[in-house]
Simulated scan of single mutants.
Amino acid sequence: MRTPAFWLTGLIGLAALLALPWLVSSEYYINIASQIVIAAILALSLNLLIGFGGMISLGHAAYLGVSAYLVIYLTAHAGFGHLAGALIAIGATTGLAMLFGYLALRASGLGFLMITLALGQILWGVAYRWASLTGGDNGLGGMKRPHPFGLDLMHPTIFYYFVLVFLGLALWCIARFIQSALGQSLQGTRDQPRRMRALGYNVWLIQWMSFVFAGFWGAVAGLLYAYYHQFVSPQALHLTTSAEALLMVIAGGTGTLFGPVVGAALVVILKNVVSAYITRWLILLGVIFVAIVLFMPEGLVPGLTRWVRSLRGRSLKEKKTTVVSAITKDRVL
């Protein structure tokens, strides 16, 4: 059950996101914010598998990269319109998630992780070697951003609000999914798979449907990634991209709604802003990650929530002690 503090925090975060372009004058930082939003959608989709399904994947960048490659190829090289290209890219990538889910869910635990890693690396190898189709190491470009409803997405502020709409849809849809019977069943398969089977639930089917749903939102993130960069290279499919998404989820807090968003902000800011001032920014990222694991092993969002509650409880305890002491003193007098 969501507490009033949860909704208040969500409203404050929403207000901050909406006001960001007016608070930041530089287009550079607005573009960084757009990257954070796109990364947050990818992290939210991965969090469905890790946080709510207990399925750790190292191949989630496959959906980001495939969707980006498809929409750029279809719209810039095959003559498709933006709407048709986007729908085909998302549909085909979701179909790929169906296939990958069928293959990966033949195993669990470490076996599942290794299969997702292998599938992701196969796609990376194809993108790297099939130069006639993907451009190889040079990547695939030539795409122009669409103009939905007459909006010029080349303007950083307009594009930021455009991707922010998709983040809002992702948060709403994922929240509804988590609260649904399927989402509750997924969490049951994470905690007690044997008991769920004994109760008659099809654990494999629940996990597969959730895997496909996560792949769909990974495809949406890939579509927005392509719109932002107007270019895609094999790096989008590489293991490092999947590892970054995994780091976002763990740092922000697995099994939470807003944790992946906070984790995405942390990683993207360190990668794009701090790296301009610190050459060894990866060392700083490692130090921060170790600190999170040591002091907030549940992640930033749950950890900060725990700290706030403990401080509030301590404050109430001190007030109660003060009141009791005052009453005792009055009685003595």
Rank of each mutant, 00 (worst) to 15 (best):
Y69T: 04
Q187N: 05
A170K: 06
Y69P: 02
P260N: 11
L285R: 09
T93R: 12
R309E: 12
Y128M: 06
M248R: 02
V332I: 15
G141M: 00
A236W: 04
L164D: 09
H82E: 02
L153E: 10
L169V: 11
H60M: 06
A226W: 03
T240D: 14
V203K: 11
I158V: 14
A104E: 02
A276P: 01
G13W: 10
L164I: 11
T254Q: 12
R2A: 13
G79W: 00
L311W: 12
D137N: 12
W172C: 07
A86Q: 05
T94P: 08
S325E: 11
H155P: 02
K271N: 06
V66M: 12
A19T: 08
Q187T: 04
E298S: 15
R309W: 04
K271D: 07
Q192L: 14
I178T: 13
G142F: 00
S275V: 10
A243L: 13
V212M: 12
G299S: 07
F52R: 03
V37Y: 03
V37W: 00
G183L: 09
G125T: 15
G303T: 06
P297Q: 07
A86R: 02
A62V: 14
V212E: 09
A97W: 11
P193N: 13
V261G: 04
V273L: 07
H82G: 01
L239D: 05
A107W: 03
L105F: 10
G91Y: 05
T189V: 15
K320I: 11
F162Y: 01
P21H: 14
L64G: 00
A62T: 15
K144Q: 09
S310T: 10
T134L: 03
L44F: 01
Y227W: 14
I250W: 01
R306I: 12
A76S: 08
A326W: 13
F52N: 02
A251H: 05
E298V: 12
A19Y: 08
Y63F: 15
A219W: 00
L8H: 08
A219M: 04
L237W: 01
G109K: 03
Y160K: 03
I32K: 06
A62P: 09
W124P: 00
I32T: 12
I56Y: 09
F213V: 11
L171E: 04
L316N: 11
G91W: 00
T254D: 00
P302G: 11
